[in-house]
Design a protein around this nucleic acid. Structure first.
Length: 578
RNA sequence: GCACCCAUAGCUCAACGGAUAGAGCACUUGUCUUCGGAACAAGGAAUGAGGGUUCGAUUCCUUCUGGGUGCACCA
C-alpha cells in the first residue's frame, strides 16, 4: 500500500493530496489535485495520461479513472493486494508494526488520578485514551515512555491533614466515619480504619464546612505549608493517604490492564518534583520572567497579553501546579532527551493552562513548536448536573466495572437457556470501546445503557466478530482444509471479496493516521467498518465448502488478525471464544 | 466582561474543504434443517439560524441562538 502511494506521489508531486477513498467504488486512492485548476477535467485527464506512461506505477495500479468534477481515482492491482493479504494472514502478531523506526521518543502522560480522591468514570477517559495513544505510537515505531503524573502533592493534602487531625483528636462522635476506632489516638491506631471512600468523605465534608467558615481554607494552606517544609507528623499522614489510594488505584489498573513504564511502573507523581522546583524558579528569575502580582504572588506575563498571566508562586511562597509541571518537563527533557515529545492526556478544562505552560516552555527555549501536546477530552456529566468530587456526586469506577462484568454475564447466547460463562474481558471491552470509539472532545451524558452497550457498534460486537473468525478457522482445521497452499492470482473475485480485501489492506495506513493525530477513535471507526463488511460477507457467502474456499479462509484469517491487532492497540482483549 | 469548545435522524455518534452526509439504538418488515442470531438484509427519518469565502462548505470566516468550560493564590 505504501509502495503504491509513494509511487503515485512521485509522479503527481509529493505534496499532493492523495487519500484513501471513503467509498471503495471510487477506488483505493483518490486525489483532488486537478480540482484546483481552471479546467479540472482536462487537467485531470492530462495528469492521468502522464500517470499511464509511468511503467513502474502501472505495474502496481490496475486502473486510473477521472471521475466526478475531476477527481483522479486509483485502483490497486489485485496481485498486490493479495500479496498484502497473505502477509497480514501470516505475520500474526507483528502486522501493523512499522518497520522504519523513526527514532522518535515520546512521553505519554495519562490517567493521573489524585490521591485521596475517587477514581471515577471521569478518570476513565484519560486512562483509556492515553493508554491507546501510547500503544498507537509504539505500533508506528516510536519509543514510548508511559507516565502517570499522580496528584500526590498539593493543597488538597492540607485539607485532608486538617480533617484527619481533627478527627483524630475528637475521636468518636465524628459522623464522617461510621466505625471510629476506640483505640489509641496515635495515627497507626485510629487511622487504621480509613479507606479511600472515607478519605473522600472527609474531603467532601471539608468543602461543606468551608462554605460556611472561610478560615478553613487558610488552615488547610497552613497544613500544606508544614507538609512542604517536612513536618514529620504531616508527612506521616500524607504517606498514609498515598498508601490507601494506591491500593485502590492499582486494583483498577489491573482490572483495566493498564501499565505504566516510568519510575518502576508507579509513574512520577507530583511529589517527586518537590525538591526539583528551585532550579526552575531560579531560571525564571534569571531570565527576568517572574513578575510580582498585586498581593505578592509571582507570575509570568505573556507578550501582548496573548494569555492571562500564569501564577508560579503563591503570596506565601508556596508552589503551584504550574511550578511542579515546569519541573516535571525539565526533568523529562533532561532524562529522555531535548527532542522528546511530551503528550498530556488531560481534560479540556485545562486547555488555557496548557497553552500558558507550553508558551512558557517556549519562552525558556526548552521546546520547539509542536513538541508539547495536550490531548484533551470532555467529561461525563449527568443530564442535569455536573459530577463533582467536592460535592460527592460521582460515579466510582469500581462500581462501573462491576456492573459491566455482571451485565456481560447476564447475556444469553442464541438458544442457550443458561447465561454463557463470560470472561470479564467482555464487560471491560464494552467499557473501553464505548470510551474509545468517539471523538474525545465532547462531553458524555452518563448513561448505563450506553456505557455498557453490547450491541451494534460495541466492544462485544468486535470481540464477537473476532471469535467468529477463529471459529471458522477451527472448523476448517477440523475438516482438514488447507489454507495457504494455493495461488490466488487467477481467481475471479466477486465484489464483496474484492472490497473486503481492499479494505483490509488499509490497516497499516489507518494506524499511522490515527497515531499521528493521537486519535484512537479513527482505529475504532475502521475496525467497526471492517467487522461490518466481514459479517455481511459471512452471512451472504459460505467460507468453508465454497469454490473459493482457500481464498476466503485467507480473507477470514486476515480479518481476524487485523481485528485482534486493532483491539490490541486499543487495549481490548480478543478472546478466541465467547 | 473576555477567551476557548460543542451543536448532524426521535436518541447516541461518523464524515483529510469534495463525489449519493454514514452507522448504532428505537420503530416497521424479512433471514434461523446454515461455518456462531451479541449477526445479516430492507424501510422511513438529519447538517441550530442568518451572512460570507470557494468550482464545491457539516467542515473555513463572521453574526446570532442554545449548551459546556476557563480566566491570580485548586489541580
Amino acid at each position: 500500500m505504501f509502495e503504491v502511494k509513494n509511487r503515485i506521489l512521485k509522479v503527481i508531486g509529493e505534496e499532493a493530496n492523495l487519500n484513501l477513498t471513503d467509498n471503495l467504488d471510487f477506488g483505493d486512492y483518490s486525489t483532488n489535485i486537478a480540482l484546483k485548476k481552471k479546467n479540472p477535467k482536462d487537467e485531470a485527464n492530462k495528469i492521468k495520461d502522464k500517470l499511464l506512461n509511468d511503467e513502474d506505477l502501472m505495474k502496481l495500479v490496475e486502473k486510473i479513472e477521472v471521475a466526478g468534477p475531476g477527481f483522479i481515482n486509483f485502483w490497486i492491482k489485485k496481485d498486490g493486494l493479495i500479496e498484502e493479504l497473505e502477509r497480514i494472514a501470516k505475520e500474526k502478531e507483528e502486522y501493523g508494526k512499522s518497520k522504519t523506526n523513526e527514532g522518535k521518543k515520546v512521553v505519554v502522560e495519562y490517567s493521573s488520578p489524585n490521591i485521596a480522591k475517587p477514581f471515577t468514570v471521569g478518570h476513565l477517559r484519560s486512562t483509556l485514551i492515553g493508554d491507546a495513544i501510547a500503544n498507537l505510537l509504539e505500533v508506528i515505531g516510536w519509543k514510548v515512555y508511559r507516565d502517570n503524573h499522580l496528584g500526590d502533592w498539593g493543597t488538597q493534602f492540607g485539607k485532608l491533614i486538617y480533617m484527619i487531625k481533627r478527627f483524630d483528636s475528637s475521636r468518636a462522635e465524628n459522623s464522617l466515619l461510621r466505625e471510629p476506632s476506640a483505640s489509641s489516638r496515635s495515627f497507626s491506631g485510629s487511622l487504621h480504619d480509613l479507606d479511600l471512600k472515607k478519605l473522600v468523605n472527609m474531603y467532601v465534608e471539608f468543602h461543606k464546612e468551608a462554605e460556611k467558615d472561610k478560615s478553613l481554607e487558610d488552615r488547610a494552606r497552613e497544613e500544606f505549608k508544614k507538609l512542604e517544609q517536612g513536618d514529620v507528623e504531616n508527612r506521616k499522614i500524607w504517606k498514609f493517604c498515598i498508601d490507601i489510594s494506591m491500593k485502590e488505584f492499582n486494583h483498577i489498573y489491573s482490572k483495566l490492564g493498564i501499565k505504566f513504564t516510568e519510575n518502576e511502573g508507579k509513574g512520577y507523581g507530583e511529589s517527586f518534583f518537590e525538591d526539583k522546583m528551585q532550579p526552575v524558579i531560579k531560571e525564571l528569575q534569571d531570565k527576568g520572567l517572574l513578575k510580582e502580582g498585586k498581593e505578592g504572588a509571582k507570575m509570568i506575563e505573556f507578550p501582548e497579553e496573548k494569555f492571562p498571566p500564569l501564577m508560579i508562586l503563591k503570596k506565601d511562597g508556596a508552589t503551584l501546579y504550574s511550578t511542579r509541571d515546569l519541573a516535571t518537563d525539565k526533568f523529562r527533557l533532561e532524562r529522555y532527551g531535548r527532542d522528546v515529545v511530551i503528550v498530556n492526556e488531560v481534560g479540556a478544562e485545562q486547555t488555557l493552562y496548557f497553552q500558558q505552560l507550553f508558551e512558557v516552555e517556549k519562552m525558556l527555549n526548552w521546546v520547539k513548536e509542536g513538541q508539547r501536546v495536550h490531548v484533551r477530552h470532555g467529561h461525563f456529566r449527568f443530564k442535569d448536573k455536573k459530577m463533582s468530587t467536592r460535592k460527592g456526586n460521582v460515579i466510582w469506577l469500581d462500581s462501573v466495572i462491576r456492573t459491566a462484568e455482571e451485565k456481560a454475564n447476564r447475556i444469553r447466547l442464541g438458544k442457550a437457556s443458561e447465561p454463557a460463562k463470560i470472561d470479564s474481558q467482555v464487560g471491560i471491552g464494552a467499557l473501553k470501546w464505548n470510551e474509545l470509539k468517539r471523538d474525545p472532545i465532547g462531553d458524555i451524558i452518563f448513561d448505563w445503557d450506553e456505557i455498557l452497550n453490547m450491541e451494534g457498534n460495541s466492544g462485544a460486537y468486535m470481540q464477537y466478530t473476532y471469535a467468529r473468525t477463529q471459529s471458522v478457522l477451527e472448523k476448517a482445521k477440523k475438516a482438514k482444509r488447507k489454507t495457504e497452499k494455493n495461488k490466488f492470482e487467477n481467481l475471479d473475485l466477486n465484489s464483496e471479496e474484492s472490497d473486503l480485501m481492499r479494505y483490509l489492506c488499509r490497516f497499516g495506513e489507518i494506524s499511522a493516521i490515527a497515531a499521528k493525530s493521537y486519535s484512537p477513535n479513527i482505529v475504532c471507526n475502521y475496525l467497526y467498518n471492517l467487522a461490518q463488511k466481514y459479517n455481511t460477507f459471512y452471512n451472504k457467502h459460505k467460507m468453508i465448502g465454497s469454490e473459493q474456499e482457500d481464498f476466503r479462509l485467507s480473507l477470514n484469517m486476515a480479518v481476524g488478525q487485523i481485528i485482534k491487532n486493532g483491539l490490541f492497540v486499543l487495549g481490548i482483549d480478543a478472546p478466541n471464544k465467547m
